[in-house]
């Protein structure tokens, strides 16, 4: 069946044999966006987290049929080197990643958090950021999440000035 969805701002139509195929595999294999990772396939580790209509979704457990007509954002579309998302900028400033495998999922979950809670407390972070990182980058991640909140606030102020 054909499914249309907007991925990182571009309307895509994919032909999928099984509408229950996890969105993860459509993004990775059909659309060749490899930044979204497979970790467990059971929505337990969070490596596959991406945004569907700006909400964090664990894409290994999200049938592609539900994405019909929706807006999907992956790490590749969160920001780029010219215009990094505040989360990416903060991740760079705090030098967060080690092996890097879980990081896109964490960054997408953090982006979703900042959408909802622009200035998260440590408690907000503890509740909402529950992905698994084996290298143990949580310590730097927490710093980066606070920094991202600051960067986002600055960005909002600057943008409002420009307007």
């Amino acid at each position: 069946m054909e499914i249309s969805l907007t991925v990182n701002g571009i309307l895509k139509t994919v032909d999928i044999a099984d509408e229950n195929t996890p969105l993860l595999w459509v993004v990775r294999d059909t659309l060749d966006l490899k930044g979204t990772k497979f970790g467990c396939g059971k929505a337990a580790c969070g490596a596959c987290t991406l945004l569907v209509d700006d909400e964090a979704v664990r894409s290994c457990s999200y049938p592609v049929k539900f994405a019909e007509g929706k807006k999907v954002t992956t790490i590749e579309g969160l920001g780029d080197r010219e215009n990094p998302h505040p989360v990416q900028q903060a991740w760079i400033e705090e030098i967060v990643p080690q092996c890097g495998y879980c990081q896109p999922g964490f960054m997408m979950a953090t982006a979703a958090l900042l959408n909802k809670v622009p200035k998260p407390t440590d408690e907000d972070i503890d509740k909402n950021i529950i992905n698994v990182c084996r290298c143990g980058t949580y310590y730097r991640m927490r710093k980066a999440i606070h920094k991202a909140a600051e960067l986002q606030a600055e960005k909002v102020i600057n943008e409002s000035k420009e307007v």
């Binding site: 790490i75 590749e76 030098i95 495998y101 960054m107």
Partner: peptide
């Protein structure tokens, strides 16, 4: 010095075995 693979890992570029 910042990790040489830092930017790539933040923008989702690196290819792992799974990729």
């Amino acid at each position: 010095i910042a990790r040489v693979d830092l930017d790539a890992k933040v923008y989702g570029d690196p290819i792992f075995g799974m990729d």
